[in-house]
Nucleic acid binder design. Structure first.
Lengths: 113, 113
DNA sequence: TCCATGGTTCAAAGATTATAGAAATATAAA
DNA sequence: TTTATATTTCTATAATCTTTGAACCATGGA
């Protein structure tokens, strides 16, 4: 994972609303949630939510699909795992503590490649 | 780890200079590096560096100690591991993928508690 | 004590990000 | 086609973050 992407992903998660959104989507799994449902659940006004979703999507941490008149968002587990891999290898003990962490959670619920 | 602390830590790392600084300190290990050395190595002006170090220290990602007339900074592995633990448990697969990740790198080079 | 070196704080300017109502767009039901 | 619903884009404002020179403080050697 490139440094720029890492910084972008970290920045996307470094905001209370967005971290909450992402956690909610992770809990929900691949089926995802509509924008309205997220908005309602977390009490974030639609236009603000849209702003944050764009940020998360830009960091490739979430994907969206249109479903009838709803837009469904879901977490990108792959990206999150790549981020965790980078942090573990580069920001944990210097010499990569590879043995485990990096790919533990990968492949559990991969939605889209 | 509290949400606020998580957001603070993520924000501290979500900036190119600071991520570079932190990575450098992780590589260096508990012995740490002086402000001047970091400044020189990464080509960051002293006053800018000081600003970023304060940010990292506030997130408890680094500690500093005075050593003669130098200020030595070192990475806080403990905090980084806590952050990784939070992200793994809350932002990886929803139901925590505990088996590994969380504490793999802990205890390798813990400097100060 | 005086000077040199290492670092931080101050201050001011610029850049980026966040917030949220209002308007616009899209889908689908009546 | 009109209407209602779901979501995004636009716009303006506010807030926060970044950058860095200059001034200041601390430590140690001459």
């Amino acid at each position: 994972m490139e440094i720029k992407s890492v910084v972008t992903a970290l920045a996307a998660l470094a905001q209370e609303s967005r971290l909450a959104i992402f956690r909610l989507l992770v809990q929900t799994g691949p089926e995802g949630l509509s924008a309205g449902k997220i908005s309602e659940t977390l009490g974030i006004p639609p236009s603000s939510l849209s702003f944050h979703m764009k940020e998360l999507a830009h960091a490739d941490l979430v994907s969206s699909r249109q479903e009838s008149r709803y837009v469904i968002y879901s977490a990108n587990f792959r990206t999150m795992n790549e981020l965790l891999g980078f942090l573990t290898e580069n920001c944990c003990s210097g010499k990569p503590c590879k043995p485990t962490a990096t790919s533990d959670c990968a492949g559990i619920e991969e939605t889209q490649a």
